[in-house]
Simulated scan of single mutants.
Amino acid sequence: MTADDARPTLPQQVLHYTAFSAEPSGGNPAGVVLDASALGDEEMLAIAARLGYSETAFLTAGATPSTYRVRYFSPQAEVSFCGHATVATAVALGERLGPVDLTLETNAGPVPITVAPSPDGTLLATLTSVEPHTEDADPKDVTEALAALGWAATDLDPAIPPRIGYAGARHLVLAAATRPRLADLDYDFVRLRTLMERLDLTTVQLVHRVSDTVFDVRDPFPVGGVVEDPATGAAAAAFGAYARELGLVPAESVLTLHQGQDMGRPGTLTVTLHEGDPRIRVSGTAVRIPTA
């Protein structure tokens, strides 16, 4: 079915989901408010701050039954696009509507979403990013990022050069030459946040290549008031565009990104690249987090 068949009466309470995991203890938690029509900006920010999740998604009805306006708030600011909260929102709607095709109108542009059962019966949400792009990272900015992270230039993988990727939000991609370097994350929160605010970055995506199409990733998120994001769909989309543009992977590829292991919240993000379509697909499941 499609959401055009009927628009349900949506609950007003905050829902708690974790995205990119089928277990409540894994993935990235997000708040979801399916009817935010009565909430102003300050109220949405206050709710996001009270929840303390990386982001909370706030929906209002769109122009058609299959379209929703969505805004994302971290505990400290509004964010143009958030992948994990999008997946959480899509699964929350899918649980109410069944398999469904939707469009979320984000500050970054329209994001089509498909929600369908996976082979094990859980709902799988696939978002299609806005058109992505990458840009060179200024060497001075890379040097400052490394200093904030406490990394040396020799800690970088020379085969995966620093760049800024965009697929709805901006992310600086830095590749660790070794898995232990990625695992050892202890950075200067204020220094990195200052750099990110100047460059309008949402996260710094730290990656380590495990195999041709498998990567371990971590995402510091100090601009959102969060030390680290457990699973970052927007950064995954940006990285997919980056990897394809630099020829790190074939133009037609399925990438697997593992994130959250070092935080004790493992999650899996599937990134699909289609030759001839610049947009990136990011897929994952989500599950409701029990609350008292």
Rank of each mutant, 00 (worst) to 15 (best):
S253I: 04
D188P: 11
Y17F: 12
A292V: 13
H84V: 09
A108V: 07
M196K: 00
S253L: 07
L192F: 05
Y187Q: 04
T18M: 07
R265G: 10
V282A: 04
T194A: 15
D277N: 15
G121Q: 10
A286H: 00
H171L: 01
G233K: 01
V217R: 03
S129E: 03
G264K: 06
A147D: 08
T194D: 15
L174W: 08
L146C: 06
E23M: 10
M44I: 06
A108H: 09
T67S: 13
T143L: 11
P162Q: 01
G247N: 09
N28L: 02
D229K: 09
H208W: 08
P180N: 01
T272E: 11
V227Y: 14
A57D: 06
R244Q: 10
L269F: 02
T89Y: 02
G150S: 11
G267H: 05
L123D: 06
P220R: 03
E245P: 00
P230H: 01
R163V: 08
A90M: 01
A108G: 10
Y53R: 13
L93G: 03
P158I: 00
G150W: 13
V115G: 06
V210K: 13
G233R: 02
M1C: 10
M1K: 13
D120A: 12
I164M: 01
G52D: 09
G264W: 05
L124A: 09
H208D: 06
A167S: 07
E78A: 03
P117S: 12
V249W: 00
P278M: 10
L201K: 05
T89V: 04
L146T: 08
V111E: 05
L195W: 07
F20D: 03
A237C: 09
A243G: 07
E252C: 05
G260L: 09
H171P: 03
L195F: 11
A77Q: 14
T268V: 14
D35S: 12
L269T: 08
P112K: 11
D186F: 10
T154P: 11
L127H: 08
I289C: 08
L174F: 10
I280R: 10
V207E: 05
R179A: 11
T213K: 09
V217I: 15
P139F: 14
G94N: 01
P112Q: 10
P266Q: 01
D141Y: 08
R288V: 13
G109S: 06
V87F: 00
A167Y: 03
G40M: 04
A241T: 02
Y17V: 00
Y242C: 02
T103P: 04
D212Q: 14
H258V: 06
A38M: 10
A38F: 01
V204E: 02
R69P: 06
G31R: 12
P162T: 01
I160L: 15
E105V: 12
Y68S: 09
E42H: 15
P222V: 06
A92P: 05
I113W: 00
D120Q: 12
P278N: 15
P250Y: 13
Q12W: 07
